[in-house]
């Protein structure tokens, strides 16, 4: 025994040696399960969905006709269906914009100023709502927003009852009470998805070195200029990541609008009812393709506008 190398101490050592001499083998082994999952379960079902959306339904028998046609996509343009799409996209856009505005100060504080204990408080505060059931939160909001709920009570208590009534009297977004209006749906969406905006934003802001903000001030920029020209562009990848969450989650959700809001359908509800009682799988599939298409357009536009340049 020369003594230049230790003898292998067992199977583990021998396996390490195999991986050391063939590094690609280890990568392959690590990637295989997720690739299988992604390929078969996710891409596979997505393709199945896409195929279904090009089928149509026989109006007399109610059976799916497995022949390729664009007829089903044409049905999306019927006013009642187009309204559902428009309503959902408008809601998703409103929720995303509001989330950006509300999340930014929180994320900025957490990224730049919070240290040690305050950082822990921040993470706990953001994550805690995610630990409780989504349904519990939504029902809680229904009670908060109800006509007999705390908001109405508080508004009347401070003599702002007529302000609340004036808001509810606004056509389209108003309604009988907050819990049966679009305003209510919007508030609950905003609350439920807000953490998904704050966290990526905070991560992006944390990567902006302080010296960069100092450089901007050093060159004569005031706070607002630094915000527009340095902070916002550098935070853009985080804002985009967050908006992908808030936007697509709002596009696909079918529970919140069912519990809080007017009885008018959102995309998710349309898909849910079409594939269920109506049995119109092709139209449900076509509806389900809409958010995917919207997200692709959104990301392409964001990319064109240079939102990912700072990555």
């Amino acid at each position: 025994m020369s003594g230049a190398a230790h003898p292998a101490r067992g199977a583990g050592d021998r396996l390490t040696a195999v991986f050391w001499s063939r590094p690609k083998l280890l990568t392959l082994l690590l990637l295989l399960p997720p690739l299988l999952w992604l390929g078969v379960v996710y891409i596979g079902s997505l393709v199945a969905l896409l195929i279904q959306s090009f089928y149509s339904i026989d109006e007399f028998s109610g059976l799916v006709v497995p022949e390729f046609t664009l007829k089903t996509y044409g049905e999306l343009l019927i006013p009642s269906n187009a309204d559902v799409i428009l309503r959902t996209v408008a809601m998703a856009a409103a929720v995303t914009l509001a989330a950006v505005v509300v999340a930014f100060p929180v994320a900025f504080f957490a990224a730049r100023y919070a240290k040690g204990r305050w950082k822990a408080v921040f993470y706990l505060g953001i994550m805690l709502p995610l630990w409780s059931s989504y349904l519990v939160k939504v029902y809680a909001w229904k009670l908060i927003l109800a006509k007999e709920g705390i908001i109405t009570w508080a508004a009347e208590g401070i003599g702002a009852g007529n302000v609340l009534n004036a808001v509810l009297a606004i056509p389209v977004i108003g309604g009988n009470s907050l819990s049966t209006s679009y305003i209510g749906t919007f508030l609950v969406f905003l609350y439920v998805w807000l953490p998904y905006m704050i966290l990526p934003m905070q991560a992006a802001l944390e990567r902006v070195p302080t010296s960069m903000l100092e450089a901007s001030a050093d060159l004569g920029a005031g706070g607002w200029r630094t915000f527009r020209s340095v902070i916002l562009p550098l935070a853009a990848p985080g804002v985009i990541a967050g908006s992908i969450f808030t936007f697509s989650l709002t596009l696909g959700d079918y529970i919140i609008p069912q519990i809080v809001g007017s009885s008018r359908f959102f995309l998710g509800q349309a898909v849910y009812s079409l594939q269920g009682t109506a049995g119109n799988i092709p139209l449900a599939a076509a509806f389900a393709v809409v958010p995917i298409a919207i997200m692709l357009v959104y990301l392409t536009v964001a990319r064109k506008m240079g939102a990912f340049d700072a990555i």
Partner: peptide, 28 residues
């Protein structure tokens, strides 16, 4: 700082990564 007639070359340079070299120089 933004009203002082002094400028700094930072240790890590602190160039703005999303701007071209020209825009970086022209920032002030």
């Amino acid at each position: 700082p933004n009203r002082r007639h002094v400028n700094t070359v930072f240790q890590d340079y602190a160039l703005f990564p999303h701007m071209s070299v020209r825009d970086n120089v022209a920032y002030g």
